[in-house]
Design a protein around this nucleic acid. Sequence first.
DNA 1: ATGTCTCGGTTACCGAGA
Length: 261
Amino acid sequence: MRIVTWNINSVRARLDIVEHLIRTHQPDVLCLQETKVMDPDFPRRFFEDLGMPHLAIKGQKSHHGVAIAAKAPFAESYSLDWCGKGDARHIAVKLTTGQTVHNFYVPAGGDEPDPAINDKFAHKLQFLDEMIEWSKKLAEPSILVGDINVAPHPDDVWNHKQLLKVVSHTPVETDKLFTLLDAHQWVDVCREIVPLPEKLYSWWSYRSPDWSNADKGRRLDHVWTSPSLKAAIRGAKVLRDGRGWGEKPSDHAPVVADFEF
DNA sequence: ATGTCTCGGTTACCGAGA
């Protein structure tokens, strides 16, 4: 079972590289974030034609939006609301093999890491708090993927010291992420395969010219599993090359995880 | 402070969000 997560930064603007990902890496379950499309306009036919006709989508106009496409049917699917905002940041599917896949797009949090003056940062912290409470009560076996918008470890960013005051790597965010990991004893799948202190990133800003050479990356995209699924992990990798696919790449690379089930 | 993208509203650019 191959599960891939990718922040696509508008699915309709990047159908060419979504097709490339599906053809070259053959995910069984593809989780997308920032689809930026309302549900009636989602390119269903495109995924059907590529052999992934089973879709669970939660979109809204212009911003956010999540989707799961799969080769095989789901047992069920649903979306949860976070922070009472009614926005499109979560979609879940229960696989017929028994595991539930939760696909998240956590708020980015704006520029200023101070909840007193930045509502977007306050929203991000509240969102993570709700994920912590939810994780405490969550049933196994679960898989959590998506753009969490936090790079937890010093080796998840290109320069730990320089990023301590930059939203995505501030202590208040990384502390919450470790509390969140603890809340379900989540297994950080990529770090099982690529252990610390090796550097590992999944996002490189559009604003950094020559992104690959500069390599000012951050690991914002994650795949976590319940403890009971740890023995089923068979591999994981960030498709770094994916950051450069197409004429107009996403600023995120796809993350691939393989399981024996 | 800057850099660069997408989307949508009102246009052949601009503001917001990331």
